[in-house]
């Protein structure tokens, strides 16, 4: 039975590894896209601009209030029908199907961004206001204050929360398998269908997710130590 996981003739080892690569690709791209989106949303929430604040609040409230699976369905099937409509305007007929990879990244990243926004907003609020005043007194302009004072400290305060968002994003990528993107979960599904060994393949997929979560968790822990160097702790 174990040879089904190997790299030989009947083995699914290579496909599983490729699926894992695809999972990591989707997770990292979606996370970075979410980080950008979340950064903009957090900045809008903290800005004095009323319209921007309302838009950012609507984004985080709606996306965090509906299931990720629904967001994926909406962007995938809704995206297809919107693309078909646009193409129809240009005079072409027939249904259009968007590629699953970019839509999957977009969907998972949009969910990830809503959570990142809240974490980044909390991080920015944790930076003492006196620091901004001090920067102003030193003659720094807004951009320089943001880049030298706000950004590095916001990231440090937000790092633990951003680690949680990463774990969430990594697990959410498994949902993209329902729109037929061949990532780890999809490979496991196809393999169990072909071999009639669902327990073996879903356990393997679970262990691979566990490994990815564990290793990346270590990386985040190390990043926290790195970002917190030179900071005195209140306790311990």
């Amino acid at each position: 039975m174990m040879d089904l996981l190997g790299f030989g003739g009947r083995g699914w080892g290579l496909q599983l590894l490729q699926g894992m690569g695809m999972t990591l690709l989707v997770a990292v791209s979606a996370y970075l896209w979410g980080l950008g989106l979340g950064g903009v949303a957090a900045a809008l929430k903290l800005s004095g601009h009323r319209g921007g604040r309302v838009a950012a609040d609507a984004y985080t409230t709606i996306v965090r209030g509906v299931p990720s699976l629904l967001v994926i369905y909406l962007l995938f099937f809704g995206g297809n029908s919107a693309a078909t409509w646009v193409v129809g305007l240009l005079g072409f007929n027939g249904p259009v199907e968007l590629s699953a990879l970019p839509v999957g990244i977009l969907a998972v990243g949009t969910v990830s961004g809503a959570y990142s926004a809240e974490v980044l907003r909390g991080g920015a609020l944790a930076v003492p206001h006196g620091q901004v005043e001090a920067a102003k007194a030193l003659g720094m302009n807004r951009w320089l204050t943001f880049r030298r004072v706000m950004l590095p400290q916001t990231l440090r305060y937000a790092l633990p929360g951003l680690g949680n968002v990463w774990q969430l994003t990594l697990k959410d990528t498994s949902l993209v398998s329902v729109v037929a993107l061949v990532e780890l979960m999809r490979v496991a599904y196809l393999a169990q269908g072909a071999t009639r060994q669902p327990f073996l393949f879903f356990t393997t997929a679970g262990l691979l997710y566990l490994a990815m979560a564990g290793l990346s968790g270590r990386l985040f822990a190390r990043a926290e130590v790195w970002a917190g160097r030179g900071v005195r702790r209140a306790a311990r």
Binding site: K171, D172, S174, L175, F199, G206, A213
Partner: peptide
């Protein structure tokens, strides 16, 4: 640490 989907399918 594992996706809910894996748990359901398992």
């Amino acid at each position: 640490s594992t996706p809910l989907l894996v748990q359901i399918f398992l």
